[in-house]
Design a binder for these strands. Structure first.
Lengths: 199, 199
DNA sequence: CCTACCGATCGGTAGG
DNA sequence: CCTACCGATCGGTAGG
């Protein structure tokens, strides 16, 4: 399916509706209504409702992975310490989330509505992504830069906190996206760092 | 509606299904099938699907509030420092979550499917609940026990992390519920505490 | 708790 | 992108 303007408009409308009502709570006619066309007309652009969900989730996963790659590369990879790498990953993740809250919300919540094959595929990608956090935390614990936390639990803690942004954050509120990125980076770094007296 | 054994079985089954497929993704017949009865037979025990959702969410909210009350009372209220009060709140919250992951998941995710009036009511209760965390964090920042974090953002960070447990935690895995409670309390306390050199 | 049934809506197709 | 339509399923009611 080629990427057209209409196709992007459909995914924009669908992301917004999926975020507010969930995949099951959104009908094909709801999406069409947002675009002022008939429900059946949507099928001139997409093959199924499931296909729209997959496009949104797949591209969102691409964005998170690309941002993490770039962030680690930018900070010099494993030549830099676990603290800097953790900060870079958190910063990149929060940026992707606040950059498109609708699509991030669908990625976070609605991937469970994917068909079995795609859900399994996405679960593997999510696990590989989360493994970057686990590895950095384990490294920090090993060097003593981080407190002796369980890397699996700590990575889940931090990532669910970052993903939780989609549930409460309003970009037009008191806290700007840039400020949110910095606050979340600080909170995440502090959650795993060792006491100042320990190193 | 009186609380009967059957009624509780219905809410148990509904919680499990809502957790896995969401409120919209679960049909009345799905719930009935889990209890080996006909879809229409469910209406001998409940007045509507929405009514079942409300019961689950309302009772879950009761549990979180009661646990927070007891936790603050147990730690001596405002006579104890912000650190102890924060620990008590976090511990209580995580205990309620791991004690019934299905109902906690419905409370966290499916309250958005409540009818408008009930959704507004629940939003107010959630805000009052979250305000306890905000107040304690603001207190800790004022006394210097906590880092100079934004109390609103920090409370959202911590609470979404705690609620995120429902998305990944498996109680039959490597980490016992009791251990999870301790790790999460440590991570949350560390996220907001001041550097050891600062106090 | 059952059978039988209701109108509304679902995702999707045919044919233009 | 439209009209017209499909079979399936939805939440819920009637009457036992």
């Amino acid at each position: 399916m080629v990427e057209t303007t209409r196709r992007r408009e459909i995914e924009d409308a669908a992301s917004s509706l999926f975020r507010e009502h969930g995949y099951s709570g959104t009908s094909v006619r709801d999406i069409a209504r947002a675009l002022d066309i008939q429900g059946a007309s949507l099928y001139a652009h997409v093959t199924s409702k499931q296909d729209v969900l997959w496009s949104i989730v797949d591209k969102a996963a691409d964005r998170f992975e690309a941002a993490a790659d770039a962030a680690l590369l930018g900070v010099g990879g494993s030549r830099s310490g676990p603290g800097s790498r953790m900060d870079a990953l958190v910063r990149a993740h929060v940026r992707v989330v606040v950059d498109d809250l609708e699509r991030a919300s669908v990625f976070v919540h609605d991937w469970r509505s994917l068909s079995v094959g795609r859900r399994v595929e996405m679960l593997a990608r999510r696990d590989a992504y989360e493994a970057r956090f686990r590895a950095i935390i384990a490294d920090g614990v090993a060097t003593g830069a981080f407190a002796p936390v369980d890397p699996v639990v700590a990575a889940s803690y931090v990532l669910t906190a970052l993903n939780g942004i989609v549930a409460w954050y309003r970009p037009d509120g008191r806290v700007s996206p840039a400020t949110l990125v910095e606050i979340y980076t600080d909170l995440s770094r502090r959650a795993v760092r060792a006491r100042a007296t320990e190193h």
